[in-house]
Nucleic acid binder design. Structure first.
Lengths: 219, 219
DNA sequence: CGGAGAAGTAACTGGTCAGTTACGAAATTG
DNA sequence: CAATTTCGTAACTGACCAGTTACTTCTCCG
């Protein structure tokens, strides 16, 4: 089986090498997987190189060192979340529906992105030392908080929400209800003796979480 | 400064060496510190030896290897929590007070024991592989769940709680509201641009958490 | 006191891993 | 088709680190 694929240098380099963007992206994907599975200290650069199909030299050329790679992966994960969150259009929903939607989105996002959770936990182990260097993160959540504020105000006006709820506290609570469950699935599953990752358990948990939020918000 | 301390072999060996229990305990304390700070992969056995004042040989004699040490530290942490939780006497409190007390205890425990949180997160990174081997953990939470069930039933009977709340879901929610905040303090502090570890922020957060639980539980 | 065994020390070992380097192959450019 | 740059490979290096070993010192008990 001789490889005569690259014999055709037409204007569109469809397959094969010399595509830095693709290589870069492959490295980041592999790194996300490895970091999420083993943390920063446990992850192996050789493993990332092997999994990405690239090579260590490329990794160090693109990202400098292991920590540089970590920071890039972390920022990329946050960006992904922002993008998805950006797609939320809650502003014109009725307050209660809007709040339910927010909670469900958050829950499902955590369910779909366990690597994101592992990454955040690892970063907290490092006391957010890397995240602090990323200036763009800080204003990332403002739009979401504005949306929540708006929902709260409209809810109060319509008489379906209680007064005096702080949007930051509420957002933290929403995040907590989604995040904690998936962050601690394994120890919780062990303690309760059930598989909390089963769709049935997940659904029940999401329903309960929505109920907690909406129940609390009643006037 | 010649050391003539150990020159007195009276019946009570007050200070100094040859006290396996003390050495063992020192190692566990040092290991808790190191593991909580750096995770299993990041922790260094040499560092634990140095910090404990003991020696690597002792560590391997007592605990076999690094993983054995990890498991022992983990179990010890859970035991500590159980002990403190055991001291809770909520059974004869009025339902709402009891629930508030539970929530506050949980919150304060997380605040007081950041190592416990780090340990749990690391163990979840390992998919609870170590915890699963510890049979005694599984039935640890049953008494607490019974207490919650009792509170809920009395609350319903007295007309201060809503019906149909699942005690397991509720406990998970209580745990989430306490745990998540401290587990993610650093990234949250970075994002919000405030120091969430300040007593003021902690107090506000605890009040909010209690409000969420009690607000949700209203009939 | 003296011998046995437990507790402790420090140097060592073998493997692992982050980061480097020397070199080759392909592609782009003129 | 050279020359230059970009991409890729694989072997290497030096540090680090889990676990071991050879040896010393203390304590206990007869």
């Amino acid at each position: 089986m001789p490889n005569q694929k690259p014999r055709k240098p037409d204007k569109k380099p469809e397959k094969r090498s010399r595509q830095p963007d693709v290589t870069r992206r492959n490295i980041l994907d592999a790194a996300l997987y490895e970091f999420a599975a083993k943390g920063l200290a446990g992850a192996r650069v050789d493993e990332i190189a092997a999994r990405s199909g690239a090579n260590k030299r490329m990794i160090y050329e693109y990202f400098g060192n292991k920590e540089g790679l970590w920071l890039t992966v972390l920022e990329r994960a946050y960006e992904k979340m922002r993008e998805e969150e950006h797609a939320i259009d809650v502003a014109r929903m009725p307050p209660r529906e809007g709040m339910r939607y927010l909670m469900e989105f958050n829950f499902k996002f955590c369910s779909r992105n366990p690597e994101f959770i592992a990454l955040l936990n690892a970063e907290n182990l490092h006391k957010a030392g890397y995240l602090r260097h990323s200036k763009k993160i800080q204003q990332l959540y403002t739009p979401l908080l504005v949306v929540i504020q708006d929902l709260l105000e409209r809810g109060v006006k319509e008489g379906v929400f209680r007064k005096g709820v702080d949007p930051v506290e509420l957002y933290t609570t929403i995040a907590a209800l989604g995040f904690f469950y998936f962050s601690n699935v394994h120890t919780l599953s062990t303690i309760y003796g059930r598989n909390l990752l089963s769709p049935k358990q997940q659904k029940a948990r999401m329903e309960h979480s929505v109920e907690v939020i909406l129940g609390y918000l009643r006037p």
